[in-house]
Simulated scan of single mutants.
Amino acid sequence: MKILITGQHGQVSQALQQRLPDLGALIVLGRDQLDLANPDQIREHIRSHRPNLIINAAAHTAVDQAESEPDAAFAINAIAPGILAEEAKALGIPLIHYSTDYVFDGSKPAPYTETDAPNPLGVYGQSKLAGEQAIAAVGGEYLILRTSWVYSDHGKNFLLTMQRLLQEKPHLRIVADQIGAPTWAGTIALSTRALIERWQAGQAGDWGIYHLTAQGHTSWFGFAQVIGEHLRAQGKACAELEAIPSNAYPTPAKRPLNSRLDCSRLQQQWHVSQPQWQDALRKCLAGQH
């Protein structure tokens, strides 16, 4: 089996590259080989490689930057997924695509389900929702996996930023009124692997949109506290943390206050479940794969 993966250097793509090699030949394309803002290039690559499965792990993820460059965000997050879906359908193969909690406005008091109406607050969320809609409009066999608060041991993410800042600064103010599930890229990759294995074994659930995050939830402040506890356990210096509301830390893009996603449908349909976020974080910090 040939598996084409986009976003070579991204957190999820790197995690997939570590966990999928024995499932088939991986064709991993980064920005140097594949410009997702170039529709013709996307078609050329897929038609020349003729994969058995496409995993789109690439995205324009700079949430605040997207506000000032909506064309770039929509080209990569909205138009490109639709083209990938068209090419996958033409080949009669599945497409796995990752989306985000940012398709919701965060005003619901309970975790969001797949049937809740999206209402993104900013350009990033709008572009990701448009990508979902483009894939669904094409039809075919696809999985759109919405996740949240993704981190890993490389790249740009909250975990690595906090590990650095907690050791550099004596005092940090962290937002405490946004809640969600920190989700390790390794968890996403392992769940993706499980989904592929079920599909290969003829045990696929329904195709469509699913939520895929770690279990449990916390705030950014709570996440930072746990990262700090780990540093202290290693005998490292660690800043004092102060909880603040979102309005005390204004950003170009507004964030949803509630990013919790209900992942029970993925368990029911595909029998794939997720770990508690603290357990996954421990594995990541321990350097496990």
Rank of each mutant, 00 (worst) to 15 (best):
I76E: 11
W207A: 13
L129S: 09
E67H: 00
L84W: 00
L231Q: 02
I93N: 05
P94R: 02
A75N: 11
A243Y: 03
R43E: 05
Q268P: 03
T192G: 03
R282N: 12
A237M: 13
T6L: 10
I244V: 15
L190T: 15
G205Q: 04
Q215K: 14
V150S: 07
Q269I: 02
P51I: 01
C238N: 12
R282I: 13
I135F: 00
S273Q: 14
M162D: 01
S191Q: 11
S68N: 12
A73M: 04
L20F: 03
E168F: 03
S191Y: 05
G125D: 05
T187W: 01
P39S: 10
L285V: 11
Y124S: 02
I83L: 13
A201K: 03
A176M: 08
E141Q: 11
D262F: 10
Q33D: 08
Q278L: 15
V12G: 02
Q278G: 04
K283T: 09
P21S: 04
G216W: 02
R19N: 01
C238K: 11
S246I: 12
G140N: 04
L23P: 15
E168Y: 07
Y98P: 00
A286N: 10
H97S: 06
A280Y: 05
R232E: 14
R282G: 12
H49A: 06
E44L: 10
L145D: 09
L212E: 03
H60N: 07
R43Q: 05
